[in-house]
């Protein structure tokens, strides 16, 4: 870019192109996409032993016609872990983003992401605490064997689902198509019940581990991928 004035009518298109190019370079300089993915992967992996150690509390059990029973299940240890871990994680992510962007010489807009991440987690646990599952599925028989659409909704209303929703917000803030695709892929993994049969074999308090291992691995791989891509871009 030089300091010459541009003929007003003749080169407006080139000037607009340059403006868009500069804006794009700023957006790239603001990105630290690997950081939230890495932090959230760590939070997800640490949740595995927490889930194993924590003791769920079962109450208000009611027998269901045709066999079985439905209960309200609370897991205070796991609930507190996720709430605290997510708040700490989003504070770390926000501070990291601001520090890296400042070092690169630009400001950054990451607070809406952190707020939406914490808010989504609070909403998820709020819904669990008030027993929202019973509102969504009124017939206890259906709750015992929920239809696929309800299963998908229940999986979305988990901390892992909240992470995915917040990543969509970050993708929008960063105008980051790669992150948008990653977030959609991550949500697909969270919403589709993939467990490679681990659910059957692990048992003994480890039944919650497979989705956490799978989601944490996707996040960790994403962190590696985005960090590698950023390193390559900077090397060029």
């Amino acid at each position: 870019m030089t300091s010459d004035a541009v003929p007003a009518g003749g080169d407006a298109r080139r000037l607009l192109g340059e403006v868009r190019g500069l804006a794009r370079r700023v957006r790239i300089a603001q990105r630290v996409t690997w950081l939230p993915l890495l932090v959230l992967a760590v939070v997800t992996f640490v949740a595995i032993p927490v889930t194993r150690v924590s003791r769920p509390i079962t109450r208000d059990c009611q027998p269901v016609a045709g066999g079985g029973e439905t209960c309200k299940v609370f897991d205070p240890g796991v609930d507190i872990y996720w709430l605290v871990a997510m708040v700490v994680a989003y504070i770390v992510i926000t501070r990291g983003y601001v520090a890296v962007a400042r070092d690169r010489g630009v400001g950054v807009r990451v607070l809406p992401y952190a707020i939406s991440g914490v808010a989504a987690t609070v909403v998820v646990f709020g819904l669990i605490a008030v027993g929202a599952g019973g509102w969504i599925v009124r017939d206890p028989q259906d709750l015992l064997h929920p239809p696929t659409s309800v299963q998908v909704l229940f999986r979305l209303l988990t901390p892992l689902g909240a992470i995915g929703v917040a990543l969509l917000v970050l993708a929008w803030l960063e105008r980051n198509v790669a992150l948008l695709l990653f977030a959609l892929g991550y949500l697909a993994v969270v919403l589709v019940p993939i467990n490679f049969g681990w659910d059957t074999y692990w048992g003994g308090g480890w039944s919650e581990a497979p989705p956490l291992i799978i989601s944490g691995s996707v996040l960790a791989l994403g962190a590696l991928g985005f960090a590698g891509a950023q390193r390559l871009r900077r090397a060029r």
Binding site: T2, A5, V6, L15, R25, A29
Partner: peptide, 26 residues
């Protein structure tokens, strides 16, 4: 409308806050 000044405004808009060195290099 001057190209450099339009560039400064664009970068400052997108970055919210921009450092002198970043502007100089870009």
């Amino acid at each position: 409308h001057q190209r450099v000044r339009l560039g400064i405004l664009t970068i400052a808009h997108e970055a919210r806050r921009v450092e002198f060195g970043y502007l100089r290099s870009q």
